[in-house]
Nucleic acid binder design. Structure first.
Lengths: 206, 206, 206, 206
DNA sequence: AATGAATGAGAATTCATTCAT
DNA sequence: AATGAATGAATTCTCATTCAT
């Protein structure tokens, strides 16, 4: 309902782009709510107000929409991440800006998913293991790997460390989204301190 | 023919309990290999030598077997975790023994899934996001929360911290299982040091 | 309706065989009435009183049932044709017995398709281009080829001749089935005379 | 772009009549290549450079285009056949000219379907059971019937005979098209001799 | 007229679950 | 209990046809 673009207003081209986007948005939602394998084409189009047939005008298969979704995510995220990399002076500053960028990104996505829907329908436990997010994470993992190698602690098990950083960032991120207000700054601070100094370095609560 | 559960040799005298266990084991395997949504009831019973009908004698639905699987995991894991708790002197010793216990547990599960199957059929990337493991993690999360509150850093954001510990332990655990030989001790060491002291505390590679 | 075997009577094995046969029969009918490409799985199972699912218990795909149908036809027809071959003294006697055998065969098939159905539902124009019949014809074509080469007119264009014999036999056969009573003997006589002596050799009508 | 039927060069100034003809031609091709049931409306219009919508300006349905195609075929063929009829002195001369006319006709159609396409894309087995050809055959059948009744062997089973003549002509015709070079004269000779004198009358090979 | 996106009925196939034996 | 055939709703995808532009 909320996305039904369709039918009358605007030029052909506009509708086309809008419909494609409506399907992508719906797919993002459905996938976050139902999980990758459970989400069906009908689940997706039901939210768009379009017909099954229309779906296949925009995407050749169920697979393809998830591919496109993933591409879409990285395409928007990659440049942000690259900027962090280029502006970073050391590992810490890179880590901090990368994680914050990620948290702002997901907070934003989350907002747009939840937007315009009654509190009763809010999805508290969005599944962040979307194909979109997986791609974003591959991106992050790689850049953390490079940052570690370049920046400082070279004799450490980089594979384990990158995996752990991702895990921390992702998990704290999930929790962050469940709190109100969503506070990306302090979540980021927590994650960075944990990675850099462990338990003793964590911020004390008031 | 018609009245005994035959087919796989050595399962000749399956009692009711044994059949139930056979289904659980098969389900664990199938789920680890195929993933929750992809695994079908027929995939499961095929490995047991039982019939579809028999499946429904032991479990009311496909759902239920996964529920039971989860219960089964915790039932076996909980006592081990409780022992850690009771023997622990401080947060560090608890953390170390809890994580090691978890790593030994999954390494073991993994072994038994892979046992008796040709190297060519080994599943390198078992899916550890089984319902079983999710429950085990809830258990761990809770105990970490309690340990933190009791043991040391009281003014820290416990929810974030427990989540991060879990994330680290789990992710490092996943990576550990993909290496040969599977080295639970050093994986545990890595995880504990990261949690307690962050990057500077990590073990250096030779 | 007419074929619904199903459900209660008889042993499991009996039902199984009967159902498989019911599907084959229904497929033969449907294909004869609707043509190969138009016939759907639902068309077939509708006549059996079975469910879609049951169809896939017996045949792995829509393709497979048509394969099986074709096999089934040849399997029954081939031995009859072989007998003609072995008993034939010359090309004429072979031709005559082969064509008669074929006419008896299709008359029989036709009977069983039409059996037990009200006159109003009789299908006057059954499509004999079923996969079944195509196979039968390949069989016949080959044997005519061999008979020609062996039996007599060696310097003739065998490929053209065999094709023409088949065409004559098939087409006269089609017409024969539309007449009442179905008279295989005189249809066969007509075809054989035409092939062996052309127009002048044809039987005069009373 | 938006107002002229473009795409294939040389079709720039398509009038209504020309578009209609373009669709018919495309349909003939597509049907010969793909078969009646497999050919889709989109297959057809793709070759014309027109749009789906345009198709429905010229034909009310997929059915209708095949109807029209059939009509088109007879409309072109009927006068040729009538000429044969009028010039024929006896049954033999009629038969010979009618069959030759038919062979020239199909050889021609076949040429135009294959024209301007690389040898690699040649369709060796064009489907001659098009609605167009079916109509042509009805035409031929009828005229053969009349020729027989008028010309000579009156006491023969005309229905069987006409059917057989058609069958021979058609089948030999199919084979003829698969040979190189396409030799309509000798194919016609073969068919006529077979009809008029049977096996003994056939031409001997060199 | 021409365009091509939208529609939705219908196709093949899968699979959890039931039930007669 | 055990068996496995039967069921039918649900899935992905296709395609003739309609209709707003």
């Amino acid at each position: 309902m909320s996305h039904s673009a369709v039918l009358s207003p605007g030029k052909r081209e506009q509708t086309k782009v809008a419909n494609r986007q409506a399907i992508l948005n719906a797919a993002r939602e459905v996938f976050a709510e139902l999980g990758y394998d459970t989400a069906t084409v009908r689940d997706i189009i039901r939210r768009t107000g379009l017909s099954v047939g229309a779906f296949y005008n925009y995407f050749r298969s169920r697979e393809e929409v998830f591919e496109a979704l993933a591409d879409d995510g990285v395409r928007r995220f990659r440049p942000l991440l690259r900027a962090c990399w280029e502006e970073a002076q050391d590992f810490e500053s890179y880590l901090r800006s990368a994680i914050l960028t990620y948290y702002d990104f997901v907070a934003d996505e989350n907002d747009s998913w939840q937007a315009g829907r009654p509190a009763s329908e809010r999805q508290p436990h969005l599944n962040l293991r979307t194909p979109e997010m997986e791609r974003v994470f591959e991106e992050v993992r790689e850049s953390i790997g490079k940052a570690i190698e370049k920046g400082g602690a070279p004799r450490v098990d980089v594979d384990y460390l990158a995996a752990a950083c991702i895990a921390i960032a992702r998990e704290i991120g999930d929790r962050m989204l469940e709190r109100r207000p969503v506070d990306t700054a302090s979540a980021c601070d927590f994650a960075v301190r944990l990675i850099l100094g462990g338990l003793p370095a964590l911020p004390r609560k008031a």
